[in-house]
Computed example of a mutant assay.
Amino acid sequence: MRARAGSDRPLVLITGGTGTTGRAVAARLAAAGARVRTASRTAPAARDGVEHARFDWADAATHEGALRGADRVYLVAPAMVEDPSALMLPFVERALASGARRLVLLSASPVAEGSPGLGLVHRALRERAPEWTVLRPSWFMQNFIDPRHPHAAAIAGRGELTTATGGGRIGFVDTDDIAEVAARALLDGAPHNTSHVITGPEALSYDDVAAIVSRIAGRAIRHVRAGEEDARAYLVRAGIPSPYAAFLVSLDLAIRDGAEDRVTDVVQRVTGRAPRAFGDLARAHAHVFRGEPSARRGGPAA
């Protein structure tokens, strides 16, 4: 995966450039020789080969500068917004009008094309963008090790995971695998022009996750099977706005009913290598689950 040489190198704009996948995508593109511009409300640490533009989904005055000269765009929705389409659809139109040809959207596995929110953005890309890809990853493995996430915080603090998923299973995926697929979609010579449901190699329940983490941490971690209202209240106490917490619990209920019990071959097919298993990631971050001081001083692992 290499960008074109010389003045033909594409300029790739990465919205959410300081986020979990945005940072990883930017690093891969820069290493491949692409010109990279990250865009976010706060500036990231300086990196060779990466420029930065201030960007706020809710502030249209920041959009023109971010898009200037970009012919490829990685779209990451604003955080904790239940329906991001009102902010994203005008930006998509502006990106196309400014000359961007290839748009890659980070969506999510439960979001079908045309459904409210990101599903509407998905449909707009297919209908309007000359070249497009929609990434629909399953739940991030990094949710269990990033201290900003309620799951990671609860494991570290109480030794618990609380969900309304019951025994439902999920094809948890490493964000590095998502970033690799995204980088290919942005730089491959031929556009993908499709939607990719991205999973890890196995579907696990939260009971399974708790058992794996317990073995690695050397202490008991349990999955609390909460009801709908208790799960919503738990997320609100963790700092998630109530409407968005309700949305997340609705996804839990769909998982409980089997909606995410699947694995796909996308990572292998697009990148040429197998996706990372959760046990491998958990062992690599055993210090996080054991609560070692070096882990508490460190930043997010994603």
Rank of each mutant, 00 (worst) to 15 (best):
G119M: 05
A164M: 00
I14L: 08
G239Y: 10
G69M: 02
R222F: 03
G22Q: 09
H149V: 14
A182Y: 01
D265E: 07
G189A: 12
A164E: 03
V288L: 01
A26R: 05
A179T: 13
V73P: 02
A43W: 10
I221F: 04
S242F: 04
A156G: 14
D265N: 09
A5S: 09
H192A: 10
F55K: 04
R128C: 04
A79H: 15
R102G: 09
V36K: 03
A282K: 04
D83P: 14
S195K: 00
L13Y: 08
S138I: 08
F140D: 07
P130V: 03
F289W: 10
T165Y: 02
D59Q: 01
A32P: 15
A58M: 03
P130T: 05
G227K: 11
A217Y: 10
G291M: 06
V209Q: 10
F55R: 04
G218C: 14
A154R: 07
P90I: 13
G272M: 07
P84M: 11
A220N: 14
A286M: 06
A66Q: 04
A183F: 00
R102N: 09
R123E: 09
R232W: 02
P147Y: 02
D257T: 07
P243K: 03
Y234W: 12
V236S: 11
A3F: 06
A108T: 11
I14R: 00
A60Q: 12
H285C: 08
R256D: 08
L248K: 04
R256F: 04
M88K: 12
T271A: 05
A284H: 05
A183T: 02
A238K: 09
R297Y: 12
E260N: 07
D8W: 02
A53H: 14
R94M: 02
A43G: 11
A246M: 06
S214T: 13
L89C: 14
L67G: 00
V181S: 07
T38E: 08
L120T: 15
A245D: 13
P147E: 03
S195M: 07
A26D: 04
R102F: 04
R283V: 06
A282L: 06
H151I: 14
P275A: 07
A153I: 04
V81H: 12
V50G: 13
I155S: 01
V263A: 03
S214R: 06
A61V: 07
A3I: 03
A24N: 07
P130D: 05
V173H: 11
G227A: 12
E127H: 10
A61G: 13
A100Y: 12
V134T: 08
A238W: 09
R262S: 06
S98Y: 09
S250A: 13
A210C: 10
G166I: 02
A124S: 15
V267K: 02
R41V: 11
W139L: 07
V81L: 14
H196A: 01
R123T: 06
I155V: 11
T42C: 07
R273G: 15
L118E: 04
L125H: 13
P137C: 08
P137W: 00
A254P: 01
T38W: 02
I170Y: 05
I221Y: 00
R215G: 14
